[in-house]
Amino acid sequence: MNHLLVPIHEIVGEEEAERIIKKYGKKENFPNILLLDPVIEELEAKKGDLIRITRETPTAGKTVYYRVVVK
């Protein structure tokens, strides 16, 4: 998890997750991340959790991305 090539992953709190999903429409349209993904295993997230990924990109600096945990 503490590696420069692994961006910050975190589980979004239930309330906030609901708000974010509502903002972008349906949960089914969100990008996915596998439950088997090493980061997810480490985080001990459950199926259906919303994961916030914070990355550094060359064009925009800090960017936030969301993924829904799926099986």
Binding site: Y24, K26, F30, P31, T57, A60, T63, V64, Y65, Y66
Partner: peptide, 16 residues
Amino acid sequence: RSASENIIQFNYGDDG
């Protein structure tokens, strides 16, 4: 978004 409205990026090009 893709044709089936799946999200590809949350902010176009990450910087909009």
